[in-house]
């Protein structure tokens, strides 16, 4: 097990290093670093000063070490717009994005698994067909458009839910959260549902496919013959086995949720890091863009690592297969 983890850990570090080099290459070689990293409103003296501070007046290989050293110290430059360290601005926004993503994930699982299991147990029923048609729609609907239509219906026409922002927040261990206040919760519902829609369809499909495969297995028949109640068969025997693919896919999809929150956050003006990066791109606030890239790369590599480890715990064949190679 530890050999497996160490191997994966080394791979992850390698990926982060390569991505860091790519980001450096993209900013410094493809684009004009002066354009990208110096405030366009700066005068000549300011440009010189920033160039020197960033080491841009030195040869490329020295610049690269400068970038690496600064990045390792967590220094990604200051935002042009806010005048604060880019990294700090992004880290401040992480809790809002995570709250949204976790809420969406919970919604996807709580709605998706029962629907999928039902559709798998009774594939011919009308309700099941409706669920599957709904899941096709969930795959095809453009997230941002659904968000707009939700605002249109629930905020503008019916006036039930607020359309922008996070609402009242409470501090829990120094982190602002929305879901503990009624107002915050009402702000959270629509964006979370919007973000969850795609994953919900995915979970429905996975749960249905898993259920259809598993109900014909011998151990289910045996449990039935033994007189185990139908509820226990579904909740214990069936659920345990459909959870393996669902957990893996959802783990991988959690990263996707964070990436897609860019769209949802823009639609609902949710103050997370997705909104920050879009604003930064539109305002040409390059330090934030670079810092965001590095943070998401690290985030994704970590998520993939964790999923790999969890998966290997759930299914020993994975780690054994990896060791044999």
């Amino acid at each position: 097990m530890s050999v497996f983890i160490i191997r994966r850990l080394m791979q992850s570090v390698l990926v982060i290093a390569i991505m860091g080099a790519l980001v450096f290459f993209a900013v410094n070689v493809v684009g004009d670093p002066v354009d990208m990293l110096v405030n366009p409103e700066a005068d000549q003296a300011e440009v010189e000063r920033v160039l020197h501070a960033l080491g841009l007046d030195r040869p490329l290989h020295e610049q690269f070490w400068f970038f690496v050293k600064n990045a390792l110290r967590g220094d990604m430059g200051d935002s042009f717009i806010f005048g604060e360290p880019a990294l700090k601005l992004i880290v401040q926004r992480i809790p809002a994005t995570f709250e949204l993503a976790v809420a969406a994930l919970i919604m996807a699982v709580v709605v998706g698994i029962p629907c999928g299991v039902y559709a798998g147990l009774k594939p011919e029923a009308r309700t099941s067909k409706a669920i599957m048609a709904g899941s096709i729609l969930g795959f095809s609907l453009p997230t941002f458009w659904v968000g707009l239509m939700m605002i249109m219906v629930f905020a503008v026409m019916l006036g039930w839910l607020p359309s922008t922002g996070r609402g009242d927040t409470v501090q829990v261990m120094g982190i602002e959260v929305s879901f503990l206040t009624l107002d915050g919760l009402s702000h959270l519902v629509m964006p979370a549902l919007n973000l969850a829609l795609f994953k919900m369809s995915l979970v429905v499909r996975l749960a249905r496919a898993g259920t259809r495969e598993i109900v014909h297995q011998d151990y289910i028949k045996f449990a039935r013959a033994k007189g185990v109640s139908e509820g226990r068969i579904i909740l214990v025997h069936l659920m345990k086995n459909i959870l393996i693919p669902v957990v893996t896919v959802l783990g991988l999809e959690f990263g996707n949720l964070i990436a897609f929150s860019v769209v949802t956050e823009t639609v609902f003006a949710w103050p997370g890091m997705g909104k920050l990066i879009i604003d930064a791109i539109n305002n040409l606030d390059r330090p934030i863009v670079v810092a965001y890239l590095m943070i998401t790369v690290i985030l994704f590599v970590t998520i993939n690592l964790v999923v790999d480890i969890i998966y290997s715990l759930l299914d020993p064949r994975v780690r054994l297969g990896d060791l044999k190679r």
Binding site: A26, G255, A259, V263, I277, I281, F300
Partner: peptide, 18 residues
């Protein structure tokens, strides 16, 4: 494998930002 482990929208976002 590495590219597919990053969501498409994120990769596109990065490329367009550059």
């Amino acid at each position: 494998d590495i590219q597919l482990s990053f969501p498409a929208i994120l990769v596109a976002l990065v490329l367009l930002a550059i």
